[in-house]
Design a protein around this nucleic acid. Structure first.
Length: 429
RNA sequence: GGAGAGGUGGCCGAGUCAGGUUGAAGGCGCUUCCCUGCUAAGGAAGUAACUGCCGUAAGGUGGUUCGAGGGUUCAAAUCCCUCCCUCUCCGCCA
């Protein structure tokens, strides 16, 4: 959530930021009007309440002095004030709710550093690493949904039988490879990040805090009977880990990582990327996440990007880094770098990590603050996160990139310690 | 799933089954100061968050918050309803 006070203290800033993200000018006008209206009503209501409180206090004193029978007139007065308060309060609540509802659906203000633009085409390619079109032979141009299925390490048909389209079943060395990637993703960040294994089913409030609700309810799995949601990413429970808490400045930055399954309905993308591992309803991911002071946020963003990028680079996969334009940012993000890996079989760049800085947008929703050392009061933290390793797309890119002419698949060296002696997945017999 | 007991400030813990100067006794912790050769002990004061308005500021002045949300009342930590969480016992279970 953006700071509602900004609406009145710096409406131009809010307007510029939101318009660059595709929010209409009239929506912003309405918000500013609602905010002003609500504030006036709140003031009126508080004044009446103050009078009621003062009268009640007087009545209390009369009772205390044993003169309760003299309180009748004051009570009548207070009662009529109370009726007036009720009327104002109703209007104030209506407007307050309307404002809150809209604020919750409003995206974050983009960082001034984020490139301006509205669609994917406006994203800036920061750099491309390790990509050489000419290095690929015929044997690389086989998509994983063919090669891996042929090798028996991926069983898409049975996954569909069991759970439906866009679910996956890894087998044998394929399953081992998926587990190896998870371990690799965790171990390489264990120097600084605390490993967490959070719940993967969460309450509505938890999903609200990170921004998936209320706007994107259709994208998440919901267990109606128990009113629980399946997490789309470990960002969700990790961000709520310190919800409604006040940290000491000396605690910051807090670095957390978690491996979880991630569940996505992909309601808006029916029919797209349905082949193989490109887009799944359930997949494994190692998430890295940090809480930071506003001063630490910039460096932390760079650190998360460096770590996410390092994993891909160490696996020997070609990748590129995109600086997302304002119009392509996720709702909660102020700035995002995407890492896309090149998959030669599918011949596509696959997004494998979104490294985002959320400024205080999520922290305001989740009410996560810190107490500045030596300072007064509390301040909202900044939250940041990125995929340390999103398994299926990396798995796919590895299988395609490391495919040899005989159809076997070489395992990159950094994964050898996790593969129980397997350095090559043998080709078809 | 059944039965019972609870959720109060940074922490512990009164207050609730007589509704009224109770934003909340007392203690611990913390901060500042005093005392002491140092430390310990002792003494004094201060010590919640969010938020509206006024003020350059220090601050002043309203409002809200005693698990959450509703209700009763002139007035709710205290009474009523719903929900959440914790603990104990029983049942079930990896």
């Amino acid at each position: 959530m953006i700071d509602p006070r900004l609406l009145r203290s710096d409406p131009d800033l809010v307007r510029a930021g939101l318009i660059s993200r595709g929010v209409s000018s009239s929506t912003i006008d309405e918000l500013i009007a609602l905010e002003a209206q609500g504030r006036t009503l709140d003031g009126e209501r508080d004044d009446v309440r103050a009078q009621v409180n003062a009268l009640s206090k007087q009545i209390g004193e009369l009772h205390r002095d044993g003169r309760g029978d003299e309180a009748g007139e004051l009570q009548a007065q207070s009662r009529s004030l109370g009726d007036a308060e009720k009327a104002i309060d109703e209007r104030a609540t209506t407007i307050g709710d309307a404002l809150r509802r809209r604020l919750l659906e409003l995206p974050n203000l983009p960082s001034p550093d984020a490139p301006d633009g509205s669609g994917e085409d406006a994203n800036v390619v920061v750099r491309i690493e390790g990509f050489d079109e000419g290095r690929y032979g015929e044997h690389h141009r086989v998509p994983h949904w063919e090669s891996a299925v042929e090798l028996g390490i991926l069983d898409l048909e049975r996954a569909a039988k069991i759970s439906g389209a866009m679910f996956v079943l890894y087998r044998g060395r394929g399953a081992r490879l998926q587990r190896a990637l998870v371990q690799f993703g965790l171990d390489r960040n264990a120097d600084a990040f605390e490993e967490v294994r959070p719940p993967t089913m969460v309450r509505t409030d938890t999903l609200m805090s990170t921004g998936q609700l209320p706007k994107f309810a259709d994208d998440a799995y919901h267990l109606e009977r128990d009113d629980l949601w399946a997490i789309p990413t470990a960002e969700v429970p990790l961000t709520s880990l310190y919800r409604d808490e006040v940290l000491a400045e000396t605690d910051l930055p807090v670095r957390l990582m978690a491996h979880t399954s991630c569940f996505r309905r992909e309601a808006g993308s029916a029919g797209r990327d349905t082949r193989g591992l490109l887009r799944l309803h359930e997949f494994d991911k190692v998430e890295i996440l940090a809480y930071a002071t506003p001063d630490q946020a910039h460096d932390m963003h760079a650190e998360l990007l460096r770590r996410a990028e390092g994993a891909i680079a160490d696996l020997g996969l070609p990748y590129r880094i995109l600086d997302l334009c304002t119009g392509d940012l996720g709702i909660s993000s102020a700035r995002t770098f995407d890492i896309e890996v090149y998959a030669p079989g599918a011949d596509r760049w696959l997004e494998v990590s979104s490294v985002s800085w959320f400024s205080d947008y999520q922290a305001r929703r989740a009410n996560i603050r810190f107490r500045p050392t030596g300072g007064k009061g509390t301040e909202l933290v900044h939250t940041l996160n990125g995929s340390g390793l999103a398994v299926p797309r990396v798995w796919a890119a590895l299988v395609e990139t490391y495919r040899r002419a005989d159809g076997s698949i070489e395992i990159p060296e950094v994964l050898h310690p996790y593969m129980g002696g397997t350095t090559v997945i043998p080709g078809p017999v």
